[in-house]
Design a protein around this nucleic acid. Sequence first.
DNA 1: CGGGCGGATTACAATTCGTAACAATTGCGA
DNA 2: TCGCAATTGTTACGAATTGTAATCCGCCCG
Lengths: 234, 234
Amino acid sequence: MKPPHVAILDDEPEVRRMLSDALEEAGFRTTSYGRAAEFEIGLKRSAPDVCLVDLGLPDRDGLALVHRLALESGAAIIIISGRAQVQDRVTGLELGADDYIIKPFDPAEVVARIRARLRKGRAEAERVLQTARFAGWVAQFDRYLLVAADGSEVPFSHAEGEVLRIFLESPKRLITRAQMQESLGGAAGDSFDRAMDVRISRLRTKLGEDPKNPRLIKTIYGAGYIFLGEVVWS
Amino acid sequence: MKPPHVAILDDEPEVRRMLSDALEEAGFRTTSYGRAAEFEIGLKRSAPDVCLVDLGLPDRDGLALVHRLALESGAAIIIISGRAQVQDRVTGLELGADDYIIKPFDPAEVVARIRARLRKGRAEAERVLQTARFAGWVAQFDRYLLVAADGSEVPFSHAEGEVLRIFLESPKRLITRAQMQESLGGAAGDSFDRAMDVRISRLRTKLGEDPKNPRLIKTIYGAGYIFLGEVVWS
DNA sequence: CGGGCGGATTACAATTCGTAACAATTGCGA
DNA sequence: TCGCAATTGTTACGAATTGTAATCCGCCCG
């Protein structure tokens, strides 16, 4: 997979350098331009995935440029501007910019915002399967399936999945019964806690736990539960 | 075309009102929630196009919620937070938020940023997508026809097509029964849910699903359905 | 060492879902 | 207008999952 290409348009050389340094360190390819005329020539040679555009250009009205870019280019357009008024931001976004960052900016935030833009573009294809690995198991939450170390598959139900998710999201930490009820959306009190017990019990059997010596879901008498075991999400 | 639906999650009633007023004036449908628990229940009823999430929630860690939303929901996620540090913004965006707005905010900018998000998303959807490929099938919605891998053709009806389209538009994602009913325009409640079951059942038989071990349309008891399988629209 | 209490497990009941059979609706052509 | 066929909704019943209640087991403290 090729690294995404970011085009930078800003008349101040220091700003250009700061941006290109940060972006290349973050794994992007960059091309920098100081004037709108060069920028447009560069666009014809290679289509960037993201355009960072400063509005205060010497040779062209920045907003008009943004508008044309939005219509003609498929790239994500991010304005970087010293003009901080709300009205400036609103018109910039209305004209087709995908984001508006105010100077002075932090390069780390620029990187994060670029990533957010690129993510949506290819989000569906790249969406990582929501899976967790622990103690030889692989839990696939998008398929409601547990895969054992030997490859055998054990389906789990929605109720069991909710409990399992809570455990896997905070392993090695005490989870009180009240917390778990809250997460499961159940009204605390009367007889719902018994339902929770049953859910945990059924989950334990699916995980092949030895009731007398549970290795994964440990009961803390009078307090709650702890999920032991290294969890790696991917 | 239905107006986009924006879900608002913020514990301060004034903020909720300010947002919903501005958004509805701008032509959006809104639903407001004060607590994460209610918000998640609302998500099961109808799938919003945009989620505005405040990080300072009383009953749940906002960032964890954002992360789950990013993975499980197809909506655009915009954080609205009083935490203004760069580090906060970066982690919020890295966890899957599409934008990060700092309190105090101007409603006009919120509207503009929501529009910017929807614009990008809709650009994809606006290409008239009439055929989808999945699991060896080709679904041609303009001809109400399913073409199998061996070339044989199976016609599907309008009702079946509606269900199929919903599945193919959000594959590998839980679709609650309420969401599906809303998409199908049916009044929830009495006996319409049985009609939906029947539609799905008939679609399953046309797809040649094994009732005991469905490979494509999986039922999540008590929750909804998931369409497994890679989908490519063209 | 025994009682009380909290949790685990089992059996059963309630809910939810699948599908087959049937009824209602729609659309079309004679 | 009538009748036929295709589609869709409705009802009924069986199967699967989940909650509830009853019982059993084990921990903690005296």
